[in-house]
């Protein structure tokens, strides 16, 4: 009797351990945070203010202005690249294609690929690039705009590197990071976009984040 109970208990524990973990899992909120004290009914109340991606406005491959409104209530993945990049970009893009293929029909997911060579990567060049990849602009936006604004977004807000560097092939140095951003524009994950295993994790984390928002 005791043994049966033990076995049933163990079985239950195993089943719940396997089934409940995706919902239970929560992604961290990355970046600096500050306490914000407000007075409610004469009593101080402390809220945590998380780092968020500020408002932005860039043009995509359809010449459409892409802003924070475009990704409102969506989760999105951001990266930085340029179309003529001879180093890590093809690898990043082949990994981003995996993300695209999994989520292309999910209206709550967007991908933002910022060009760090916007003088060369005009709307027409980005259009050609997106057409060649065969991806639709409603999900995957290739962005161009003011170069300094794009560098600023990368360095100060997404915490990844992107800069001009005449010493490297292609003339620009940048990391191969993919950044996962939630519906409130908070950073929730940072992945190596040139590493298939890390992108596997991103794909899982996106499911977690979508489930979190659904609650």
């Amino acid at each position: 009797m005791k043994n049966t109970l033990l076995a049933v208990g163990l079985g239950l524990a195993l089943v719940t351990a396997c089934t409940s973990s995706p919902e239970e899992k929560k992604l961290p909120i990355l970046g600096p945070r500050e306490p914000k004290v407000t007075m409610v009914d004469g009593k101080p109340q402390v809220d945590t203010v998380y780092h968020t991606i500020p408002d932005f406005a860039f043009l995509d491959q359809d010449s459409t202005l892409v802003t924070q409104q475009t990704v409102a209530n969506k989760i999105y993945v951001a990266d930085f690249f340029f179309t003529s990049c001879p180093s890590i970009c093809p690898k990043m893009k082949s990994q981003m294609l995996r993300v695209y293929e999994k989520f292309k029909d999910n209206p709550r997911v967007a991908l933002l690929s910022h060009s760090i060579d916007p003088a060369h990567d005009t709307v027409a060049v980005l259009r050609d690039y997106a057409d060649r990849l065969g991806v639709k602009s409603s999900t995957w936006h290739f962005l161009t705009g003011n170069r300094d604004s794009i560098f600023d977004m990368a360095q100060k807000h997404y915490y990844t590197s992107a800069m001009e560097d005449k010493t490297v092939a292609g003339g620009y140095a940048h990391s191969g990071s993919f950044l996962l951003v939630d519906g409130q524009r908070r950073l929730r994950g940072h992945y190596d976009g040139t590493n298939a295993q890390d992108v596997d994790k991103l794909l899982q984390d996106m499911d977690v984040l979508l489930a979190e928002k659904g609650k």
């Binding site: 179309t83 093809p90 690898k91 082949s94 990849l133 065969g134």
Partner: peptide, 15 residues
Amino acid sequence: ASCHLENGEGLRGVI
């Protein structure tokens, strides 16, 4: 490999 990738498949439509 950074462009044509380790598996030699390139990048769809681009490489």
